[in-house]
Amino acid sequence: LNSSFVEGAQMWFEQTGCNYNMVLDPQRTVYRSFGLGSSYAQVMKFGCLLQYGEYGAVDRDFPDVPPRLLEDIYQMGGDFLLDDAGKVLLCHPCKTPFDRPTVNDILQAAERAKL
């Protein structure tokens, strides 16, 4: 496993205080299987750039990531909820960097899985 992936993951854990398990996917096999990719056009849209610009006005910092660890700044994310067996309960590939499902959407998907 590429040491930059491990270093980047460790840095993320330190900066966020998160204690969840993490799976590293350097070849982005799982990432692509969920239909995710990169989009210069979506990341560089005026609305996204405006929102990034507002971070300074509200004293919100970007994650502190050394440039050597940045591989694909145009990578689009997504939110996925899986059950213990790996069945996908919620699939939300982001249309923009700020596109996320609501908490209610996630909770409803989890509730539907109980039925």
Rank of each mutant, 00 (worst) to 15 (best):
Y20H: 14
N21E: 12
N21R: 14
M22N: 06
M22R: 10
M22S: 09
M22K: 11
V23Y: 13
V23P: 08
P26A: 15
Q27D: 14
R28N: 15
R32F: 14
F34G: 01
G35S: 04
G35I: 05
L36V: 05
G37K: 02
S38D: 09
S38T: 06
S39Y: 04
S39D: 07
A41F: 10
Q42R: 11
M44G: 09
K45M: 12
K45G: 12
G47D: 14
G47R: 12
L49E: 13
Q51K: 15
Q51L: 14
Y52G: 13
G56H: 11
G56D: 09
D59F: 03
D59C: 02
R60I: 02
R60E: 05
R60D: 01
D61W: 01
D64N: 08
P66Y: 05
P67T: 09
E71C: 09
D72Q: 05
D72T: 09
Q75V: 05
M76T: 02
G78Y: 02
G78R: 02
G78E: 04
D79E: 11
D79C: 11
D79R: 11
D79S: 10
L81V: 07
L81G: 04
D84E: 13
L90T: 05
C91D: 08
H92T: 03
P93S: 05
C94G: 05
K95M: 03
P97E: 04
F98G: 03
D99E: 02
R100N: 01
P101Y: 01
T102P: 06
T102C: 02
T102L: 00
N104D: 14
I106R: 13
L107M: 12
L107W: 00
Q108G: 08
